[in-house]
């Protein structure tokens, strides 16, 4: 018992610096925000659930939530299936390595560098409109209409495709070759192998990639910033914009309630991910 106790103590020693930092920098301040979410903005008296009511009735909040969910619903299926297709094609092919690196490159590019290109592409007199004119179709004002949403979708997929391809390929490498060989001996064709062997075996990868992509879609601010700078069209007004605005105007009462709610929802999603990881 004594030896065991000493061992435990040593393990804690190793994580102690990190744990102290995490507690002081993240956990305790978040508890403080939790407390604040029940108090008024100026004189800190208890106001019950008022802040939560204010936030849930706030049109900007509802817009940001709506946009975020809409964005998630559109992006994730496209991103995940496009990445799966690319991964299956690249997996085990001779040139897969080079192309995979090419797809990953956007991950490395700082958003500000790309912002310049993005603005020249989608300006009303920009490159994309020039190409459209060449093709004989009409031009669009990309950034100041609802089309901005689709530009953001494209930007998000452009940035995250390589990441998801890597995750799918990791899943593919976990399927043993012998299953395919056995199936081919039995006369299964390429599509049959894909539908009956590849897809079912990728189920747990699918869960993981979906949840991670969902969580990442809350981090889409960098891409929005890349697309539209500080003042985007309302179709791409995301949570981070709302939080920034409340932050600038010192509306810490609303901000704390919103942070607690978003944290709570994401916590549930993360625990779900944990459950998936545990059960398979």
């Amino acid at each position: 018992m004594k030896i065991r106790g000493r061992k435990d103590f040593r393990g804690l020693l190793w994580i102690l610096p990190s744990l102290l930092g995490v507690s002081v920098l993240y956990l305790l301040p978040y508890l403080d925000v939790f407390r604040r979410s029940f108090t008024g903005a100026v004189e800190e008296q208890f106001t019950g659930l008022d802040n939560y009511r204010n936030v849930l009735g706030n049109t900007a909040f509802l817009l940001a939530v709506k946009n975020t969910f809409l964005f998630t619903l559109v992006c994730i299926p496209i991103l995940i299936s496009a990445a799966l297709l690319c991964a299956v094609l690249l997996f085990g092919s001779k040139y897969g390595g080079i192309l995979k690196s090419a797809f990953l490159m956007p991950m490395a590019l700082p958003a500000v560098s790309v912002a310049l290109l993005w603005r020249l592409l989608f300006h009303s007199q920009g490159l994309v409109n020039q190409w459209l004119v060449w093709f004989g179709t009409g031009e669009s004002d990309w950034m100041n209409t609802g089309k901005a949403f689709w530009i953001l979708v494209a930007g998000y997929i452009w940035k995250n495709l390589g990441y998801d391809i890597i995750l799918w390929m990791a899943g593919l490498s976990g399927i043993s070759e012998s299953i395919y060989e056995a199936a081919r001996v039995d006369g299964a064709g390429g599509w049959q192998c894909f539908l009956r062997i590849t897809l079912p075996n990728l189920k747990s990868s699918l869960y993981t990639i979906t949840v991670l992509s969902f969580l990442n879609s809350f981090k889409v601010f960098r891409e929005v910033y890349l697309v539209a700078g500080d003042y985007p069209h309302e179709s791409i007004y995301m949570m981070q914009h709302l939080f920034n605005n409340w932050f600038q105007s010192f509306s810490f009462d609303k901000l704390s309630a919103a942070a607690v709610m978003e944290g709570g929802v994401l916590l549930l999603v993360i625990l779900l991910l944990q459950k998936i990881w545990r059960t398979d």
């Binding site: 393990g11 994580i15 744990l19 925000v33 991670l212 601010f221 949570m239 994401l266 991910l273």
Partner: peptide
């Protein structure tokens, strides 16, 4: 190492790693 609350603390680490900046911004 195995120490008390190891799994619990690690879960907190995973949660913090996955939360977007906006949730922790005010704190």
């Amino acid at each position: 190492y195995d120490f008390p609350c190891r799994r619990g603390i690690f879960l907190v680490y995973i949660i913090l790693m996955l939360l977007p900046f906006q949730v922790l911004m005010l704190s």
